[in-house]
């Protein structure tokens, strides 16, 4: 298959550049493997889910989160400073009247600390180009059908600003504790391409 051939070609090119940089003292021995391991151990959607569950059970936290997410995250042991640079985070809350959805039209900006690595569809030209022009039909393709009078807001992330959706708390969950609530939150729910 030509893809495998292409993959082995680029694989050899990457290995070559790594070896060259090691030889020139720009990469330490084992540095790449360490970074890969650290990334694997880093952000996952469970982090975002924890934030959401706290906001559902604690009105004060919800208010602080929506007002200044960067300042509120440490309350649940999280931060936006773990990556290459600290980014501003704005959390946008869905309600009966308004549904939020995220994109990065220019590239792939995404709150990795809270959501983990982004899915390929989020990075695709197909999604980036269409969700800003026709969010309702894009959401419908994801199985999110909203009443015609629900307003849809699309948030376009940038190098310095990231967004996360605070989904609506599902009906019938009044008896659930915070951890059980967090388990209901999905990655797509945090992006806005799914309802919970």
């Amino acid at each position: 298959m030509s893809e495998d051939h292409g993959s082995s070609l680029i694989s050899a090119r990457v290995r070559h550049v790594e070896a060259l940089l090691e030889a020139r003292g720009l990469l330490a021995d084992g540095e790449i493997d360490t970074r890969i391991d650290e990334f694997a151990a880093g952000g996952t959607p469970a982090n975002g889910a924890r934030v959401v569950a706290r906001a559902w059970v604690d009105a004060g936290f919800r208010e602080r989160l929506l007002a200044d997410a960067n300042a509120a995250l440490p309350e649940v042991g999280l931060s936006m400073a773990g990556g290459l640079q600290e980014q501003r985070l704005k959390v946008v809350a869905n309600d009966v009247d308004e549904h939020h959805v995220l994109v990065c039209t220019l590239c792939s900006c995404y709150p990795i600390a809270l959501l983990g690595p982004s899915p390929s569809w989020y990075k695709s030209e197909a999604y980036r180009s269409r969700v800003v022009r026709d969010p309702r039909s894009v959401l419908a393709e994801f199985g999110v059908t909203l009443p015609a009078d629900t307003r849809i807001s699309v948030w376009d992330a940038s190098a310095e600003s990231r967004y996360m959706v605070l989904p609506r708390r599902p009906e019938g969950t009044a008896a659930l504790e915070e951890a059980a609530l967090a388990a209901l939150v999905t990655r797509k729910g945090l992006i806005g391409t799914a309802l919970l």
Binding site: S7, I10, S11, V14, R15, V17, E18, L21, L27, E31, I32, D33, R35, I36, F39, A40, G116, P117, P119, S120, W121, S124, A126, Y127, R130, V138, E141, F142
Partner: peptide, 22 residues
């Protein structure tokens, strides 16, 4: 069209992880 990949891995090949780390 937008295509979703179920259970998508973090990287699709080892070299992608290396490029990311590099």
């Amino acid at each position: 069209p937008i295509v979703e990949e179920p259970d998508e891995p973090r990287f699709h090949a080892d070299w992608e992880a290396h490029v990311f780390a590099l």
